[in-house]
Design a protein around this nucleic acid. Structure first.
Lengths: 240, 240
DNA sequence: CGGATCTTTGAGCGGGGTCAAATTAGGTGG
DNA sequence: CCACCTAATTTGACCCCGCTCAAAGATCCG
């Protein structure tokens, strides 16, 4: 146990647990009965889609890790989330002709491309799919609002603690270790997401390590005291 | 022209323009063909729904003004948005049994209650409705992300400028004056929404007034120089 | 091996938070 | 209608958390 995630592999090795068979929010086999689902590979650093590109599909992450970035006309940029297996991307562009944000792979990733008008048609025919899709959109809203609460009410170090716990719980749901993992993003991305500067994130991590709540070495993180971390983050988040 | 919004009336007087007939995102007459839509009145200060209450309907604001608040288990609170005529509330609870946030009326309001399972059924029968609903959810995500960008990248005064411009443009879409309006919420609510303290909002407003970009007296606001305000907010937001 | 990028850490500063007080508006009951 | 009370807003004074600027490793790439 306690081996970190294999860094940057397409097969996303799963050493200790077996939860990969749990269905993602959207049932891919059901979807394939209604539309042509194409697999896409996106290399680390490449865009899955960019601000301004025509919107014609939703994307389900099958493997890998991505970030989404909101952009302003005057060049400001904000990481709005990190996406992994089972997460649905592109939903924010529903109802528009073009995407309004970027999705960038942070490691080599595999994506299922769900062509958009067909998704809607499938939902019309299969009520269960419609429920899944609207639930996924609603879940996205809840996630965003939950981070607004965190960012609006917690100081830097506690935001970082909340971030680590969130990541851990999501990894755990996918069957990976919640206590030992590799960050796929740099300090600057974490900082942007948490509305901080990268130096502040670095210092927060160092301090959490000094408190012996975690251990950090570059991108390798171990959570040593999840209860204390949780108390620190304000939300007694349950992991596993 | 330039009369402020009539403060706290159910009929929401509309002195200068006539845009009330423009259809809200969801067509209420179409909905009424498929379900029992009940009108609700919510007095200022009352909850439309609260965290923990069973979720059984979406709510379309017909008149009035409300805020939504995200809550944490340890008592922190964050205003996540201000809602007015045409806005859909409760969407964040889709897929759940209970609401996970509060919706509070800031003035006496009229609400159309759309019972939830029937809404889904109507969407199955009327593709146009399904498109409207998923677009409304997606729009909500875009709004939230846009505020994440603002809060994550702009200093206090510019957040306040962005807030005023956003409010102005939404009022303009409803046919009210964008240059002269009454704030329905207190400084503390604005502050929470913008991840600031109420004293900071107060100071920012005073300073914007000193710059002669706006004039403020308690809750009455006039936008004197929208181009400069927009430049200040980073986003050349177009109003009207 | 050399250069670019990422991360850490330090030193110093400043924007926004905290605490406090004054002012004003608004609501209520006499 | 007014006196009183409560709540909202403004403003000042001070301080501190997080930002800025800078430099020194560390890691990864060709």
């Amino acid at each position: 146990m306690d081996t970190p995630l294999a860094p940057s592999t397409l097969e996303m090795s799963n050493p200790q647990q077996t939860a990969l068979e749990q269905p993602p929010e959207l049932d891919i086999e059901e979807l394939q009965r209604h539309m042509v689902v194409t697999r896409r590979k996106v290399a680390a650093g490449q865009y899955l889609y960019r601000n301004g590109q025509p919107f014609h599909a939703l994307y389900l992450v099958h493997a890998g890790f991505l970030k989404t970035c909101e952009l302003s006309e005057d060049g400001r940029e904000q990481v709005t989330g990190f996406r992994m297996r089972g997460d649905l991307l592109g939903v924010e562009s529903i109802g528009l002709a073009v995407h309004t944000c970027d999705a960038v792979a942070l490691e080599d990733s595999q994506i299922w491309e769900l062509p958009y008008p067909p998704v809607l048609n499938a939902c019309l025919q299969v009520p269960e799919l419609q429920i899944r899709l609207s639930s996924a959109l609603a879940e996205e809203i809840r996630r965003d609002r939950s981070w607004m609460l965190t960012i609006g009410t917690l100081p830097a170090e506690q935001r970082v603690a909340a971030f680590l716990l969130d990541l851990a719980s999501r990894l755990a749901r996918l069957g990976f270790s919640a206590r030992h993992f590799i960050l796929r993003m740099g300090r600057a991305d974490i900082a942007s997401f948490l509305a901080l500067k990268h130096e502040t994130v670095s210092r927060a991590l160092s301090h959490l390590e000094q408190l012996e709540y975690i251990s950090v070495l570059r991108r390798e993180v171990k959570l040593l005291d999840i209860p204390k971390l949780s108390a620190c983050a304000g939300t007694p988040r349950t992991i596993q």
